[in-house]
Design a protein around this nucleic acid. Structure first.
Lengths: 213, 213
DNA sequence: CGTTAAGTTGACCATTTGGTAAAAGACCAC
DNA sequence: GTGGTCTTTTACCAAATGGTCAACTTAACG
């Protein structure tokens, strides 16, 4: 009894080696397809082919297209919110925020498909992730905004709206993943994110450096 | 002969009143659907229903799904690039750039569907708009970047990478249209773009205000 | 080994999808 | 009004899509 509950409860790392391997393959393939075509534009056949499995076999591991999508979204949210959690209210304000910016930029660089998956979901009105936003993201952002507001009130960074500051960090960092096709046309460098790190550091330093009013 | 070429050439405002009216209805409906679901996720049936026309009737006006999409994209690009063209190399640098920021933000506010349509297309790798980017967008951006670099060289705004500056303007302004579903969860105000204008003005003012090194 | 459970697949299905053909209907100049 | 064009619809199609099922194969393990 205890065993069966352990087996089925989290459904995270559970299952045999085969189960873990094939679930991973499917997630990998589905991430490609959903990130590029969005939920409705993705097909099980595409996912199956890219995963090297047959379509019925995929439906042996996931109950349907939607479950695959939701699973990806859940995995994503953890990774996505991690950098925000690491902002330390007791750290140096400018350092904390610039570190956050660099972490977010690294995420765009390292997980562009995750960024696009998320962008697609939000573009479509967040039909499947809205609960997560409300329950997980919102309190986190409220906390971060309070921290930043505290820094502002203490005169340690220049005053501004914390929430819009956070939006601007998300927007500018994720842009390099979500709009890579456009950035690639307009920039010669092999890796535009190199120039991006330099630029964003400057942008948010100038924005936040405390100034005598 | 001259007449027939005039009739069929541009295919813009051509056709009878009925043609113009129905083409407009279809464009309107297709913009809704493509913006929300992306190219592959959109269906002719959805477009037809929203346009109040039958599916075959839609295919009387457009040769197929792809032609509708391409038509929308073409119409979009004109409107989209207009603010960039209006940057005046002879104007006051900071004013010019802040005016550009505000115009872009207003576009996000007024044409969120167009913004999402564009975002969707780029997310998918710009398969249908890549030529436009190369031919229309790139030279425009090159010109604007040169203008900004000129201002920097003259010491009239603080030094930075012009291209990444442009990216950051696009990213921050379009964010309020493309990620509206997320912004709506996190901000109480009825119109987050109000706070956004204030914030972005501050952001780019602090970024660009010339400083004695 | 052999047996049992886990994993895989080919054949199939109902629905949806982009698109077509042809006939019916609306419009318009004469 | 009448002939001819422009517009719309009804009926239809082939392909694609999400999903099922029963049969088959493979792995696990005493």
């Amino acid at each position: 009894m205890e065993q069966s509950s352990t087996e089925e409860a989290t459904a995270a790392a559970g299952g045999s080696r085969i189960q873990r391997r094939n679930r991973a393959r499917i997630s990998e393939a589905a991430l490609d397809v959903f990130a590029q075509h969005g939920y409705r534009g993705a097909t099980l056949d595409q996912i199956a082919e890219r995963a090297g499995l047959s379509k019925p076999n995929i439906l042996y591991y996931f109950s349907g297209k939607e479950e695959i999508h939701v699973t990806l979204l859940n995995q994503l949210m953890d990774r996505w919110l991690a950098p925000l959690r690491r902002i330390d209210p007791d750290g140096d304000p400018l350092t904390e925020i610039l570190t956050y910016v660099r972490r977010k930029l690294k995420m765009s660089q390292k997980y562009p498909r995750e960024s696009r998956l998320f962008a697609n979901e939000i573009l479509q009105g967040a039909p499947r992730i809205a609960p997560h936003l409300e329950q997980d993201l919102k309190p986190l952002v409220d906390g971060a905004a309070a921290t930043i507001q505290g820094w502002i009130d203490a005169g340690r960074i220049a005053p501004t709206d914390p929430r819009h500051l956070i939006f601007s960090i998300w927007a500018t960092t994720q842009h390099y993943a979500d709009f890579a096709a456009q950035v690639g046309v307009l920039v010669e460098e092999k890796s535009p994110t190199d120039g991006a790190e330099q630029f964003l550091t400057t942008l948010f330093t100038r924005m936040l450096q405390p100034r005598r009013d």
